[in-house]
C-alpha cells in the first residue's frame, strides 16, 4: 500500500502540471495563431508588390500543370501582365524559398527571398538588394559567374556560390513555370 502511495503522489502532481501546461499552450496558440497567419499573409503581399512593382493588384492563385503555384499580376484594368511564382531550391543550409515576378515576355521583374537558413555573412547576403537587383530584366537560362557578368549572367556572392546557384536555379524554374522559357 505504502509503495502505491509513494508512486501515486508524484505521478499525480506531474500529470496535473502537464495538463495545466498543455492547456496554457493551447490558449496561447489560439491567441497567436491568427496573428502569425496574418503576419505571413502580409509579408507575402508586401513581397509580391516588391517583385512586381508595376502590378496594381494580384489575382487568384492557381496551380500549373507541374504543381507550381502562380499568382497572376494585374494592371489597373484587371488585365494579366505577368505572374508571381514561389519556387524552392536547396541551398547550403537548407531550403531557400524564392519569389520571382515574371512578365508575359518571360522577363524577370524582380526577385525576393522569402525564407532561407544560409550562413550569416556569406549566403545570407543573398537577400541584399545589390544581389537580387541583378535579376531584373533577365530571361530564362540565367547563368552564374564569378567574374564580371556578361549578358544574362549574374555575379555570384563572394564565398557563397552554392547559394547563388540555388537562387538562380529557383528563378529559372520560376520563368519556366510561367511558360516564359521560349520567349528568351
Amino acid at each position: 500500500m505504502k509503495k502505491i502511495k509513494e508512486y501515486a503522489a508524484p505521478t499525480v502532481v506531474l500529470f496535473v502540471i502537464c495538463i495545466v501546461a498543455a492547456f496554457l499552450l493551447a490558449v496561447t496558440n489560439n491567441v497567436t495563431a491568427p496573428k502569425i497567419e496574418e503576419v505571413n499573409a502580409e509579408n507575402e503581399a508586401k513581397s509580391r508588390q516588391v517583385v512586381f512593382a508595376d502590378a496594381a493588384s494580384f489575382g487568384e492563385e492557381f496551380t500549373n500543370g507541374d504543381g507550381i503555384k502562380l499568382v497572376p499580376a494585374l494592371d489597373k484594368d484587371g488585365n494579366t501582365i505577368g505572374h508571381v511564382v514561389v519556387t524552392v531550391e536547396k541551398g547550403y543550409g537548407g531550403d531557400i524559398s524564392v519569389m520571382t515576378g515574371v512578365d508575359l515576355e518571360g522577363k524577370v521583374t524582380g526577385v525576393n527571398i522569402l525564407s532561407m537558413s544560409e550562413t550569416a555573412g556569406l549566403g545570407a547576403n543573398a537577400s541584399k538588394e545589390s544581389f537580387l537587383n541583378q535579376f531584373a530584366g533577365k530571361v530564362f537560362g540565367i547563368n552564374v559567374t564569378k567574374d564580371a557578368p556578361n549578358e544574362n549572367e549574374i555575379k555570384a556572392l563572394t564565398g557563397a556560390t552554392i547559394t547563388s546557384n540555388a537562387v538562380t536555379k529557383a528563378v529559372n524554374a520560376a520563368i519556366e513555370a510561367t511558360g516564359g522559357e521560349n520567349n528568351g
Binding site: V13, T28, T32
Partner: peptide, 22 residues
C-alpha cells in the same frame, strides 16, 4: 516537472515571437 514548466514557457515565448517579431 521543471522541464515541463520550462518547455511550456519556451513554447509560449516562441509563439509570441513568431506572431510579433517574425
Amino acid at each position: 516537472a521543471y522541464i515541463v514548466i520550462i518547455a511550456s514557457f519556451v513554447t509560449i515565448v516562441q509563439m509570441i515571437v513568431k506572431a510579433f517579431v517574425p
